[in-house]
């Protein structure tokens, strides 16, 4: 049965990869919770992930908010439903576009650099050196990154929400002739706590996924520069796919009736 062989092999490979990733995740989480902690390293990663991602996330958010207002106007105008624009902008940004786009941008920026850095450390024996110096690489390298990702992404997304809504406001009031006060009142009336909270929960999960993928692929990279390159690609691709998958499931968790 030569046709069954490749199917079986692929399936086994899939199981093996899933198992390895699950073990890695559990081990990483357990090291996040147990001392020793490295506050200096956590702070450094928070600055790297949070502060330095602000420009790219902010730019993404403002243009998304602007284009949302513009697009929904051209559509809603036909049904004289322009008054729904503040609602559409704020709900789309806080629930979906803020966390997903910020997650994807951070995956490209942070996930890639993490995979490259840790991967290079692996192939140049720096991770072995950590071990021989009686320092656990999970505690020293991975836990600070996971903690920083988990905490920084919600803050980034909260800022992105505000900037995105502001982008919609600017286009609506300057280009589409909305009354500024009415627009803001409508925005605040429409938005619910659950919209924002669901977005922030997503952000925390995405932050964890991005850093986990960066660390996992970097940590397991093999074979010199090519291996590090592959690890970087895999980290970004897998983080992006996981973000989109988890986005659906978290949405279902919050909003499915």
């Amino acid at each position: 049965m030569p046709i069954l062989q490749p199917i079986g092999r692929t399936f086994l490979f899939f199981l093996e990869a899933t198992g390895r990733l699950s073990l890695f995740t559990l081990l990483s989480l357990s090291h996040c919770l147990r001392p020793p902690f490295y506050p200096r390293l956590i702070l450094r990663q928070m600055i790297e992930i949070g502060y330095y991602s602000l420009p790219v996330v902010g730019l993404t958010a403002i243009f998304t908010g602007m284009v949302l207002a513009l697009q929904s106007y051209t559509g809603f105008e036909r049904f004289s439903a322009e008054s729904a624009i503040p609602n559409v902008v704020v709900v789309s940004i806080t629930r979906e576009l803020g966390p997903v786009l910020a997650g994807l941008m951070v995956a490209g920026r942070v996930g890639a650099s993490m995979a490259a850095e840790i991967g290079t450390m692996r192939v140049t024996e720096q991770i072995d050196a950590l071990d021989t110096l009686a320092t656990n690489p999970f505690k020293y390298l991975i836990a600070p990154r996971l903690i920083a990702g988990l905490t920084m992404l919600p803050i980034l997304v909260l800022i992105a929400d505000i900037i995105g809504v502001f982008g919609g406001y600017v286009v609506a009031t300057q280009k589409l002739g909305f009354n500024p006060t009415t627009y803001l009142t409508n925005t605040l009336d429409f938005v619910e706590v659950q919209d924002v909270v669901s977005g922030l929960v997503k952000a925390a999960v995405f932050g964890f996924l991005v850093t986990l993928m960066g660390c996992y692929h970097g940590f397991n990279s093999r074979g010199g520069a090519q291996g590090v390159g592959a690890a970087t690609t895999n980290a970004v691709v897998s983080a992006s796919i996981l973000i989109l998958c988890f986005n659906y499931f978290i949405t279902e968790l919050f909003f499915a009736r």
Partner: peptide, 19 residues
Amino acid sequence: DRVRRKFGMLFQNAALFDS
């Protein structure tokens, strides 16, 4: 870790932490 503290190692390419 306790056993590893007895050891020191010079790696082939030194494996210095570049950060």
